[in-house]
Design a binder for these strands. Structure first.
Lengths: 146, 146
DNA sequence: CCTTGAAGCTATAGTTGCTAGAGACATTAG
DNA sequence: CTAATGTCTCTAGCAACTATAGCTTCAAGG
């Protein structure tokens, strides 16, 4: 049996986070010792590792809640879990596209900064003037109805 | 002179967000009309556009606060602005690497889920068992001190 | 056996970057 | 002039934690 501290260390999750997960119902209420301290077995460790892994992969706690409820009754079809993963994949591809554009823009900004005065600084200039921006891709919805 | 609504429309920022920016000191307190409504000139519009653009590029409000204070006294060296932009670039590259790894992982998950029962479904398995994870890259700090 | 310090407990409040609501006043179109 | 829309302040809420305060419990040393 693990105390909350040990569990946190093993799973790479901070102690208050574990209590938070219990509070919002992602983890079941833990057993308690005689002195009212939480005690965890290996099932809890697995579940926590699952949550942490999914968080690292960018799943929201809501998606994780769904995935967990799927894995809690493993006799249903895989389709639901598959759908969740696919939705996440779309999200990720989206974020990836935006981030890539963003990286290009920042690189452009940084490269063009010759170390002069701020008055001539491309960083400030580009940030101040949208028309200097290479990626229309970013902030497309500005000025709809002039 | 623009009312807050017009300003928001021009800059692509919602009205409460403008008030929020004023509240936290990113925008100066606006002039008021006789009836106590905020009025903005073109300087405010520029500043707000700057903020929005920087937010789109992923800068935190703190970083933006710094950038704005730099651009408020434009006779100093560009180095600080450059540093902020470079830090942001690093951050973005980091996120990009993580997201790329994540995409591969999700693709693997989706491909391997052939539509069987959850018991055979790799989605749950991959998320639950770190060792099945293709990308060591993610969650590196798990289990430091066993 | 006792003490001391670390780790645990609960409960509350703070973080970031907004967004949403309530209820009152201002402005504008018809 | 009235009705509709816009704006005002203030408060509370969102995700997903993180930090604080003021306790109790536990493990190890003397």
């Amino acid at each position: 049996m693990l105390t909350i501290g040990k569990l946190g260390a093993k799973a790479g999750v901070k102690v208050p986070t574990i209590r938070y997960y219990e509070q919002i119902g992602l983890l079941p209420e833990a057993e308690r010792s005689a002195g009212n301290q939480r005690l965890y077995g290996s099932k809890a460790l697995e579940r926590l590792a699952f949550i942490r892994h999914a968080r690292d992969l960018g799943f929201t706690l809501e998606a994780i809640r769904d995935l967990l409820s799927l894995s809690d009754n493993p006799d249903q079809s895989c389709a639901a879990a598959d759908a969740i993963a696919k939705a996440q994949l779309l999200e990720v591809e989206n974020r990836l596209a935006r981030l890539t554009a963003l990286k290009a823009e920042l690189e452009r900004m940084v490269v063009q900064c010759a170390g002069g005065r701020i008055a001539d600084c491309r960083v400030i200039e580009v940030l101040g003037d949208h028309s200097l921006c290479a990626t229309d891709h970013l902030h497309p919805e500005t000025e709809e109805t002039p």
